[in-house]
Lab assay of single mutants.
Amino acid sequence: TSSHKLRLYERDDYRGLMSELTDDCACVPELFRLPEIYSLHVLEGCWVLYEMPNYRGRQYLLRPGDYRRYHDWGGADAKVGSLRRVTDL
């Protein structure tokens, strides 16, 4: 099985509160109590970021690497509604 891990930060450049995720999350704002995510670091696996909860809205593919600001993943703003692991490519 492949492993997945990413870290979410409330501010750009990996500042502020950090939360780690290793499984799908249908509602990021509810789980982490963060209305917006300004940076993230994908440590393992690929993920799909959705701008709205319950895997809706615009989708962004996140490969392992650094995303210091939301425009690094192509986002128009810092809204992160849900995240899902990519298990098949």
Score class of each variant (00 low, 15 high):
62 L>A: 04
81 G>M: 07
79 K>R: 13
51 E>T: 12
81 G>R: 03
31 L>P: 03
32 F>M: 09
13 D>Q: 11
39 S>C: 05
82 S>E: 01
78 A>L: 04
38 Y>W: 13
37 I>V: 10
74 G>K: 08
68 R>F: 15
66 D>E: 13
69 R>Q: 15
5 K>N: 00
16 G>A: 05
74 G>C: 03
76 A>L: 14
35 P>N: 10
86 V>A: 09
54 N>G: 13
56 R>Y: 09
74 G>H: 12
75 G>L: 01
78 A>W: 08
86 V>R: 05
63 R>I: 00
29 P>A: 14
51 E>F: 00
3 S>D: 10
78 A>D: 02
51 E>R: 07
34 L>Y: 10
87 T>S: 12
65 G>A: 02
68 R>K: 13
89 L>M: 14
61 L>Y: 15
27 C>G: 05
25 C>F: 01
65 G>N: 01
2 S>C: 09
79 K>Y: 07
21 L>R: 01
82 S>A: 02
67 Y>N: 01
10 E>K: 00
11 R>D: 09
13 D>A: 07
28 V>K: 05
84 R>W: 05
62 L>D: 00
63 R>Q: 12
73 W>Q: 05
18 M>G: 04
7 R>H: 09
6 L>Q: 03
56 R>A: 14
77 D>G: 09
9 Y>P: 00
73 W>M: 07
52 M>W: 11
17 L>A: 14
44 E>H: 05
72 D>E: 09
35 P>S: 13
2 S>M: 14
42 V>P: 00
34 L>W: 09
70 Y>G: 05
73 W>Y: 12
44 E>G: 12
53 P>T: 08
72 D>W: 04
84 R>D: 00
56 R>N: 15
27 C>Q: 07
6 L>K: 02
5 K>V: 08
77 D>E: 12
11 R>A: 14
4 H>D: 02
48 V>D: 10
87 T>N: 15
25 C>G: 02
71 H>A: 14
84 R>Y: 03
29 P>S: 12
19 S>D: 10
42 V>A: 01
5 K>A: 06
7 R>F: 09
35 P>F: 06
59 Q>M: 08
18 M>H: 11
73 W>L: 03
51 E>S: 11
45 G>Q: 03
42 V>M: 04
16 G>Q: 03
30 E>S: 11
11 R>K: 15
65 G>H: 04
16 G>M: 05
23 D>W: 08
48 V>S: 08
47 W>E: 07
63 R>Y: 14
75 G>R: 03
86 V>C: 10
40 L>M: 15
51 E>I: 06
82 S>F: 04
27 C>F: 03
32 F>N: 09
77 D>R: 09
40 L>Y: 00
87 T>M: 13
53 P>G: 02
10 E>D: 09
73 W>I: 08
6 L>R: 02
79 K>G: 06
67 Y>V: 07
62 L>S: 03
45 G>T: 01
41 H>M: 09
15 R>G: 13
84 R>F: 03
32 F>D: 05
77 D>S: 10
41 H>S: 10
44 E>P: 04
41 H>L: 04
14 Y>K: 07
57 G>P: 08
70 Y>W: 10
22 T>R: 08
4 H>W: 11
3 S>W: 06
50 Y>C: 00
35 P>W: 09
63 R>N: 10
78 A>R: 11
26 A>D: 11
25 C>W: 07
5 K>E: 01
30 E>H: 08
46 C>H: 10
16 G>E: 06
48 V>H: 10
59 Q>R: 11
87 T>G: 13
78 A>N: 10
15 R>E: 13
67 Y>R: 07
12 D>N: 13
46 C>Y: 08
47 W>N: 02
65 G>R: 01
48 V>A: 13
74 G>P: 04
72 D>S: 08
85 R>Y: 04
10 E>M: 04
